[in-house]
């Protein structure tokens, strides 16, 4: 199956490891992966901060890069949520009917990684091996925008060697919220502190999520707390195999 990989600007620039892991999982499952070089960003940061007009160039570059692919996969619930639920709003605000039509054609083909694996490829066992204690935080946009439900957890539960630990109050937001983390740092950190406290309570070595952005926030707090808990993207856990040992 031919798949276009959307790295997301954050993954591309700050967390390329998660993107390479996504590539590895997809290729291991037999996909032919392309990286359309014209891709940049979904524009979510602009849109969610209220700069719809300024998000238009990103949306334009997104549809130009991915038009024509049947399957576009990104390792981010949040970016995929923005593509599927906000690109039409941005295009309409930009007043470009052609762009709106292109958005209508492209966005239904864009999948978050766990959706693609479970719904399109129909697999939950991706042949991964990860002998560690892991707790999973379901990020808000995958949960409540994309409604991925328990797909990430189903994928993780099939990983050999893993010990999956229940995260208390898992569905509560971690407090990242994009520019919220900067505009309201006090509330953001207070929410993150509660989240990381719950993570510590599980006794996990690794905190896993499907969004590098939320992981950046929670990981930043965990690193500052010097508790020795690592953060890993879902793709990074799914990418590991027994041969890697």
């Amino acid at each position: 199956m031919r798949v276009a990989l959307f790295a997301t600007c954050l993954g591309d620039t700050l967390f390329p490891g998660a993107v390479r892991a996504t590539l590895r999982v997809l290729e291991r499952l037999g996909c032919t992966v392309e990286f359309p070089p014209g891709q940049t960003c979904c524009g979510q940061m602009h849109t969610n901060t209220g700069y719809h007009e300024q998000a238009v160039p990103a949306v334009r570059s997104f549809v130009a890069a991915f038009e024509g692919y049947d399957h576009v996969v990104a390792p981010s619930g949040s970016c995929v949520g923005s593509i599927r639920h906000q690109h039409d709003i941005v295009a309409e605000r930009g007043g470009d009917r052609k762009l709106s039509e292109a958005v209508g054609r492209v966005s239904p083909h864009v999948y978050e990684l766990s959706e693609f694996l479970v719904d399109v490829l129909g697999v939950t066992d991706v042949g991964a091996y990860f002998p560690h204690r892991v707790t999973y935080h379901p990020t808000c946009h995958s949960l409540r925008m994309l409604r991925v439900g328990d797909k990430p957890r189903r994928l993780l539960s099939e990983v050999r060697g893993i010990r999956l630990l229940e995260l208390p109050e898992a569905e509560q937001c971690c407090g990242f919220g994009g520019t919220f983390a900067l505009k309201n740092p006090d509330v953001s950190v207070a929410m993150g502190a509660d989240k990381t406290r719950h993570v510590r309570e599980t006794g996990a070595e690794v905190l896993c999520a499907s969004d590098s952005s939320c992981l950046m926030h929670m990981g930043g707090l965990l690193d500052r707390q010097r508790e020795g808990i690592r953060t890993m993207h879902l793709a990074e856990i799914l990418a590991g195999t027994e041969e890697d040992r």
């Binding site: 901060t49 700069y51 300024q54």
Partner: peptide
């Protein structure tokens, strides 16, 4: 934001 938008407009 406009500057950043401009950057995101072109790979």
């Amino acid at each position: 934001m406009r500057g950043l938008g401009w950057v995101f407009g072109d790979s």
